[in-house]
Amino acid sequence: PEAADLRALSRHLYEAYLKNFPLTKAKARAILSGKTGDKAPFVIHDMKSLMEGEQIINCRQIPCQEHQQPQQPPAAFAAVGHADCNMSGELELRFFNSCQSRSVEAVREVTEFAKSIPGFVNLDLNDQVTLLKYGVIEIMIIMMAPLMNKDGTLISYGQIFMTREFLKSLRKPFGEMMEPKFEFSVKFNTLELDDNDMALFLAVIILSGDRPGLLNVKPIECLQETVLHSLELQLKISHPDSLQLFAKLLQKMTDLRQIVTNHVHSIQLLKKREVDMFLHPLLQEIMKDLY
């Protein structure tokens, strides 16, 4: 009966994952390997293709002027001296804003997923906030892995493939921001998790009882323990020949924290460097006093 309960939990979290995350790993890998019947993604590999691809980039969340009128320079950056703000500089900032817009939407998706974890909404509300504040960027990075291969990443719900070399070529600090995620993802992808494994792993990350400032750790650890058992069983079933996969996966949680710390520092640096950079209030909330 205990194993049956753990399997039921696994199914429940997998269903919640499918409901809340629009681009699954199965779909992303199919796109990357050209196995969907659909049109191949639009490839962005230089400034020209970025400009063309801007029309496709899905910016449905941030209510910025430039998203409705992609040809116009964004109002938020109009105060930047024109001599300093060349065409590709504006493009880079607009692209950065699109990434923000997708991140805000991702926070909403992760929040809804967290709410579907049995027992999560019964935790102290302040602890729910803390778990999300510390968990969402880690989750976003994990969710990027299925979209990436060594050469680039899918963006805009799989409609666009952006090359790693192009991302690397962006001016500082943009150009440095994605490389650690590629390095992590290429290694993470060798574990060959499926979407069901991913769902459980995400729940384990959210239910981390060691986040700073938690008021009531015990119930969080209890919930996490159950999900961990479910994950362990799930991995034994889905990867019977992969020895120590459970342990290898848990080790990834340490790498993730370092990536998030560096990511937040890069954003803070960017905020200082780009005079009029607009950082969405929700992302500000999450990153303020994070690490």
Binding site: V104, L125, N126, V129, L282
Partner: peptide, 20 residues
């Protein structure tokens, strides 16, 4: 609570961040 107003709101209802 004030520091994480939007996260609180997202947790308590389905408000889209764009409306906040």
């Amino acid at each position: 609570k004030e520091k994480h107003k939007i996260l609180h709101q997202l947790l308590q209802n389905n408000t889209s961040p764009v409306d906040l």
